[in-house]
Design a binder for these strands. Structure first.
Lengths: 346, 346
DNA sequence: CAAAGGTGTGAGATCGTTACCACACTACCG
DNA sequence: CGGTAGTGTGGTAACGATCTCACACCTTTG
């Protein structure tokens, strides 16, 4: 083996170091300045020189060094996105919507997940600060991250939840959605309606709780605190839900997000209860499985993709005109009745 | 309004420009070099100076400029990930696994979706090249992107599919999984077993087809080409599946991925057919809804999270020792029998 | 014919960080 | 006491792209 002559492998041996603007300029017989103007499309270049430079760049497979560009321009084309949990289809879809719109405007998206943890969110903010992202979209956990970013001149849009006063935001009309869900249950004759929610100060949960209460109040029904189950973030919901199903079981449950709905659904099934005969169930947020199970879940459907798109649009707008007054968009959810809710029979 | 005196808002007016190393150095009375050594933790610094610098940095909220660092070091801490479709829970989970492992090693992950399009994949590669990502993990569509990256000295790991010879890769034993699924159906007495797969040259589909064929061959059954339905990428599968369900319906279907399984499942239901009475169904890849529907789907479960983790580990290893021979890891799937498959009754 | 204006180019400084190198200082050894 | 070794520091030149400026060349016009 060592005796066999080594074949020429000139193009393989070195980790061919990247082509730079200077290389292009040299090859095309211009200065780096001109090359920069031609390839970035800013400033005067004669058509002849431009074509020549473009051709050379193409031939050599030139890829501009993003770090150098960002360093010089003091701003990158990467928009940061921080969501609670990428594994949750709601957030995944949200991110997809954001990506769509950003891509059209020729921005990149970088997604990070905090786990609904203020610390991780702050880390994320610092990451984007370090990358000189011009803007960040997030489902905020605490307002620290947003404030840090904004203090450094980074545009911030809050999506789904609204935490920081004076910040652009896109939200769902949670109260209306929750009211619709609750009214639907009331109209079916239910009076013992449980609310399954997350125990936070977030506008989502607060809004959904408010909508639930409003519907009950409008029906002149007292809200029974034992039926309002609020589970802290990061706490396993199963125990609380089981207790709810065991003791003085309500005739209907309104689950305020897709995860709680899934937990509830599984426990209902495990207990051998039947939807909607033994119990009615409504979920806030529609995800694919809810349509596939039998009976399908009645849900408050959110325009999730649109939520993301809208947030991205708002961000782009803010980047263009930083001095505009803060905008808050509110999208309407709507009730989609499937088979998991039915008339109360006694 | 215009008459009211403007209050001092010194800290609000300017988009407070970021703190730099030089600022820290000046404040702490050292040179930038020393500050750099202290804050990046490379090279000699006296404990006294280090503490002082760290304190100042902390006080001023210093965030290192990632672009400058990347430019100088000629390599960033961002690992690129390109997957086919982030909306698909399989890829989402894969990315989650990758992220977990990378985070532990203090790398960031940037995910991009090509839509199983070679062009978009190549764009992604160029993006990561521009960002000077030291490594990229991808579910390859064509080998162009990987080759481009590797030619520039970027470490590449292929995951799920294997396309490029001499490239690190982590895959599932598709053939074994498909064989297990098919043998399971055969053992239930099925002989007219359809295969629903994607029409590509990818190792996933090729392996699953091979496993299917191998099982049939071992049972001395001829493979009926009309039962092998291979749908090109980006083509709607519904028509082909409907045709399959209509004409000379097979008694069992093996769907080679979660999406085809979902399409098939929906069409089976729409047609009013019952699982497993009228038809048995097995899916390759287990996703949540398959356990929630009734009957639950029999599946070939893949260690998806582990697949991602393993790919990330391989990449980290490669970054550490670039000259190691290429490694290919193969993980085992396993059959999980639920209710969608049953003994054939005639 | 001088002045004014457009067109196209290149020199050179700069963005913020790092790394190489030289240097200064102390300490210890033969 | 000269010499080697270890500590700790700062000067300076990069990394690659951009951008301001000055300048050179053409027209056009009062």
């Amino acid at each position: 083996m060592s005796a066999s002559p080594q074949p020429h492998e000139t193009h393989e041996l070195g980790l061919a170091q990247p082509i730079t603007l200077a290389d292009i300029a040299r090859e095309a017989g211009t200065s780096p300045s001109t090359a920069s103007r031609a390839l970035s499309g800013r400033g005067y270049v004669s058509p002849a020189a431009r074509d020549r430079l473009l051709a050379v760049a193409d031939r050599l497979g030139y890829v501009p060094n993003a770090s150098a560009r960002t360093l010089k321009r003091r701003s990158s084309r990467v928009i940061g996105v921080v969501v609670s949990d990428l594994g949750n289809q709601f957030y995944a879809r949200l991110a997809a919507g954001i990506e769509q719109t950003l891509r059209e405007a020729d921005y990149q998206m970088m997604v990070l997940g905090d786990n609904s943890e203020g610390d991780e969110e702050l880390d994320g903010a610092r990451t984007f600060l370090a990358m000189r992202a011009p803007g960040v979209i997030m489902t905020p956990v605490s307002s620290d991250a947003g404030e840090l970013l904004r203090s450094q001149g980074v545009a911030v849009v809050e999506v789904d939840r609204r935490l920081t006063e004076g910040c652009d935001a896109v939200v769902i009309d949670n109260e209306a959605g929750a009211r619709a869900a609750t009214e639907h249950l009331l109209s079916l004759g239910h009076t013992r309606i449980a609310l399954l929610g997350v125990d936070t100060e977030w506008t989502t949960d607060a809004g959904r709780l408010a909508g639930y209460r409003a519907a009950l109040a409008a029906a002149r029904l007292p809200a029974d605190d034992r039926l309002i189950v609020r589970i802290p973030v990061h706490v396993d919901a199963d125990e609380r839900i089981e207790a709810l199903l065991r003791d003085e079981r309500p005739t209907a449950i309104f689950a305020a997000n897709n995860q709680l709905a899934e937990r509830a659904w599984r426990l209902i099934r495990r207990r051998g209860l039947h939807l909607p005969g033994d119990l009615s169930l409504v979920a806030f947020d529609d995800v694919p499985w809810m349509q596939m199970v039998d009976p399908g879940l009645t849900v408050v459907e959110q325009p999730t993709l649109e939520l993301g798109r809208c947030a991205a649009k708002l961000l782009l707008q803010r980047l263009e005109s930083p001095s505009l007054p803060p905008a808050v968009e509110c999208l309407q959810p709507h009730l989609l009745v499937r088979g998991s809710t039915a008339m109360l029979v006694r």
